[in-house]
Design a protein around this nucleic acid. Structure first.
Lengths: 235, 235
DNA sequence: ATCATAGTGTACGGTATCGTACGGATCGTA
DNA sequence: TACGATCCGTACGATACCGTACACTATGAT
């Protein structure tokens, strides 16, 4: 068993003043985040919020007919479970681990107490939520106007930014579920990007060869979201 | 000149306890909201928040190439300018009046003061923001999976819910801009819905003939959003 | 070494929307 | 009542993605 990761790999926790963080660190619980683990189901009361350190969580909506679409992705820059402090307690979407790793979790009530104490955590959480809002909005725009190739690049880059590695463990089948398209569509998009020499993949392992090339190929949506995250939550 | 409308046509203002509302009402300013008026531009510091009484505001993202897409719509159920109290001050999107009417506005700083006093307004604003989040998420999903016919119906119903009338003043050109499609596409969708006897329109005037019929034809996205607004902000 | 399985490649007709072009209808205004 | 402007209808080839079907290949288990 590997040792627990540093909680402050999570940017929100890292941004807290030492005092506040010390308080938090006593309350948080280290948890594994295996691929595919479901953190929340739509409409079900959430028990915890999760601060990923090196895992990635996908927020996705699953429709009545079974098709799905990712609406946002959360990694070490944020927190899963904003609806707890926003007051809704539940959301109509689902939270699934998209890239395995670890996270620290906190009982919902404890986070709410902290939030309503109006300490430094409150501002952080609110600004993060606004960034999340931007990500969702931009996903809507991207779904409307951009090609699958571009959306695939956006998805890759958003995921990469939330990992320390340049390799993703992810089958085309799963990516298709996130993007809300057919698996065959992803095969083609990924094939194009591979032919261009930007990535290499085989059986669920995607290796980034040319990140700059990806950034040239992606639509503007990626930069809009990234810029907004950097603006709202500077290092 | 018609007399100023009752501010409490706005549901957020109406939900405030008498005391808090009395305080607010002294600070708010009545403004006209003519069709097409731009309230915010992307990246520009916002000066006011707007509480619509009978107007509708569209939040839309305009892309580099000039194409656009609506990411959410705000009427008397909410407030325009959540990024002020969320802490971001700006957003990458644009706010345009989509249906003429009136609103009450409040200087940004005054709303922030109120928000951080943690009175009843704070909870309202947070829950409203979560509802807005849901609307954006569902827009993303709808853009991905549903036909233009269904999206047109969703747009109609979301707009209707924010008006007291059963008539919309809206050209197909403008609707196309909101939905992020060609004007001709809207002509076809609207034609289909009219053939089905659900609406009647001519030169920018859309009259709803059969609202129940619309609700049968729309995709699930409409109900998801409506249910979530009702849950988070009950009358 | 064999085999089942998960993951990927390819193909092909079907469909919704696009881009573009142009014609017709209705309205406000002179 | 004539005219320009706005708004809407229609048409047609192009294209991106879908739905479906099936074959191939790397991997892990036995």
């Amino acid at each position: 068993m590997s040792p627990p990761p540093d909680p402050r790999q999570n940017h929100l926790l890292a941004a807290l003043p030492e005092e506040d963080y010390a308080h938090f660190s006593l309350l948080m619980e280290w948890v594994q985040m295996p691929l595919g683990k479901v953190l929340y189901e739509p409409g079900i009361q959430m028990r915890h919020v999760y601060f990923p350190t090196d895992s990635i969580v996908s927020l996705l909506y699953v429709m009545e007919d079974g098709s799905s679409a990712e609406i946002a992705v959360v990694g070490n820059e944020g927190v899963v479970g904003v609806s707890l402090f926003m007051g809704g307690e539940t959301t109509p979407s689902r939270a699934v681990v998209q890239s395995a790793g670890y996270a620290y979790r906190l009982k919902g009530q404890l986070l709410k107490n902290e939030f309503y104490r109006a300490g430094p955590m409150q501002g952080l959480l609110l600004r993060y939520t606004q960034a999340l809002l931007t990500q969702m909005a931009q996903t809507a725009v991207c779904n409307r106007h951009h090609s699958l190739d571009q959306q695939f690049c956006r998805w890759l880059l958003l995921s990469l930014d939330r990992l320390s590695s340049n390799e993703l463990i992810m089958t085309q089948e799963l990516i298709a579920g996130m993007l809300g398209v057919r698996r065959e569509g992803v095969t083609e998009a990924a094939g194009n990007v591979q032919k261009a020499g930007l990535i290499k993949y085989s059986r669920g392992h995607i290796t980034i060869l040319d990140r700059v090339g990806l950034e040239k190929r992606v639509c503007e949506c990626y930069a809009v979201v990234k810029k907004e995250f950097d603006r709202l939550l500077p290092e």
